[in-house]
Design a protein around this nucleic acid. Structure first.
Lengths: 146, 146
DNA sequence: TTAATAAAAGATAAAATAGTATTTTATTTT
DNA sequence: AAAATAAAATACTATTTTATCTTTTATTAA
């Protein structure tokens, strides 16, 4: 569903937020160790997000990635679009160039319902909300056996 | 969501079925012309489906692809799995190796609902049903402007 | 002001997906 | 039996995604 880049990106950003409620910045290495993602690849994703102003960063000692007040209200949808684009949220399920209510493909309505559900899910989940779930232990970002 | 191969494959199989209610077999060229898919690529997909016994084919003059009585009850889900595998239907939305009710990722329940919806959609839509919609003009497989 | 640190940028490589072309094999019609 | 037809098999190319490594730039602490 989501690309690998998107999976890593979402996990990374959630982890960054959960850690820097205290003003703590995080290096890529720390982030990737925690969320089990490839370091250089994740660095690229975060740099792209920084360029798009979804996360913040500073270089040098004690530098790293963090999320400021303006950014913490982002929705997961914003993140997904920033990383994967909007391909998941538009276009026909069967790849028809023109597919519409008037000329629907055979799965048009049902597919639309699924996609709208996904959009809704990602719109309603704010970074803050999911990160708080993780911080409180209600949800996890890491592999836990058993 | 679905791969290109899957989009072409679904469209091709639906078209094949709608045409050979009469016992008519279809060549790859005809199929691809109608559904606007790349010929050689689609040929490969159909050959793979034939190997998996989801469609039938015969070589030689008047040969081509067709769908026999055993095959026409396939669900779209069977098709998708045959082409794309089951990656879409299992695994964590955020890519966690272990994500479960007991240790859920932050979007576990909502994502599961979406995915179950997709599975349901593809299970309930039989090839026959969608192909009949196309045959009757209720749905389309081709690009129609306006 | 120098050394250390960490992101940014750029270059490269591997794997997967998408797409094309050619050769081989089976079948049918003449 | 020969020619024509069409799928099957194989080989090849291109693009995108995933991933790694190296160099540069900004920042901070000693």
């Amino acid at each position: 569903m989501f690309s690998k880049a998107c999976e890593y990106g979402i996990r990374a950003v959630i982890y960054i937020w959960s850690q820097n409620k205290k003003g703590l910045k995080l290096g890529v290495k720390d982030i990737c160790k925690e969320i089990d993602a490839p370091e250089y690849f994740t660095a690229k994703i975060l740099q792209s997000l920084a360029k798009q102003n979804l996360v913040s960063s500073t270089k040098g000692p004690n530098g790293g990635f963090y999320i400021d007040a303006d950014q913490e209200n982002m929705r997961l949808l914003d993140l997904v679009i920033a990383i994967d684009g909007d391909r998941l949220f538009k276009g026909c399920g069967l790849g028809l160039k023109y597919c519409s209510e008037k000329h629907p493909c055979p799965i048009h309505y049902e597919y639309k319902a699924i996609r709208d559900g996904l959009t809704k899910l990602l719109s309603e989940k704010s970074l803050k909300a999911v990160a708080e779930e993780v911080a409180s232990g209600k949800a996890t970002l890491v592999t836990i056996l058993t």
